[in-house]
C-alpha cells in the first residue's frame, strides 16, 4: 500500500495545478475577453456609475407603483438565498398562499407565479401573463394608461426557444423609473 502514496500525492498535486488553477484561470481569461459583462455578473449601473443590482438577480419591490417579482422564501437575501422547501401537503403552504391570495381579492384568479416562492429565492422573471396581471394596479398608481404599460411589458418579453416566455422584472421597473412620463409621478 505504501508504495502507492507517492503517486497518490504527486498525482493530486499535478491535477490541482492543472484543473484547480490553470483551468479556471484559462476560463476566466477567455471570459473576460469574450463576455466581460456576463463574467462580471451582468451588473446594472446608473448614470453615476453606481451598481444598482444584477439583471439576473431579483430585487424586492414594495408599493403599487412597481411590478412585483415572485415572492422569495428568504426575503430576497442573496448570501445565502433560500427556498421554502414546503411540501404540497404541508398545511403551511396552503395557509401562506391563501393569505397572499386574499390580498388580491378583487382580481381573481391570481397567477400561480405570484403566490409561490421560487427555487432560488432570487427568480428575476415573471411570465408575461403574471406581469400583465399587475398592470391595472401599476397604471393606477402611476396615472398611466394600461395600453402604455402593456406595450412596455411586451417590449420586455423574451421568448426563448427552449423555455417559457419571460419578462425581467428588474428591467421592466428600470424602464418605469427611467421613463420621464412615469418617473415624474
Amino acid at each position: 500500500m505504501l508504495e502507492h502514496f507517492r503517486p497518490a500525492i504527486t498525482t493530486l498535486a499535478v491535477m490541482t495545478l492543472l484543473v484547480g488553477v490553470a483551468y479556471p484561470l484559462t476560463v476566466t481569461g477567455v471570459a473576460q475577453v469574450a463576455f466581460p459583462d456576463q463574467a462580471a455578473g451582468s451588473l446594472v449601473h446608473d448614470d453615476t456609475g453606481q451598481v444598482r443590482g444584477s439583471r439576473l438577480i431579483a430585487q424586492a419591490f414594495d408599493g403599487d407603483q412597481w411590478f412585483q417579482p415572485r415572492p422569495s422564501a428568504g426575503s430576497y437575501a442573496t448570501v445565502a438565498s433560500a427556498a421554502s422547501n414546503l411540501a404540497p401537503s404541508n398545511p403551511k403552504l396552503r395557509e401562506r398562499i391563501e393569505q397572499a391570495g386574499a390580498g388580491h381579492a378583487g382580481q381573481a384568479p391570481v397567477p400561480m407565479q405570484l403566490l409561490t416562492t421560487s427555487g432560488s429565492g432570487l427568480d428575476p422573471h415573471l411570465s408575461p401573463e403574471a406581469a400583465a396581471w399587475q398592470i391595472p394596479r401599476v397604471a393606477q398608481a402611476r396615472s398611466l394608461t394600461e395600453v402604455e404599460l402593456l406595450r412596455l411589458v411586451e417590449a420586455h418579453t423574451e421568448r426563448p426557444l427552449f423555455g417559457p416566455a419571460v419578462v425581467n422584472v428588474l428591467a421592466l421597473n428600470l424602464a418605469l423609473a427611467d421613463n420621464p412620463s412615469t418617473s415624474s409621478q
Binding site: L86, P88, T116, P164, V166
Partner: peptide, 9 residues
C-alpha cells in the same frame, strides 16, 4: 405547483 420552481424553466 410552481413552489420551488423558476419562471424561466
Amino acid at each position: 405547483s410552481l413552489e420551488g420552481k423558476e419562471a424561466r424553466f
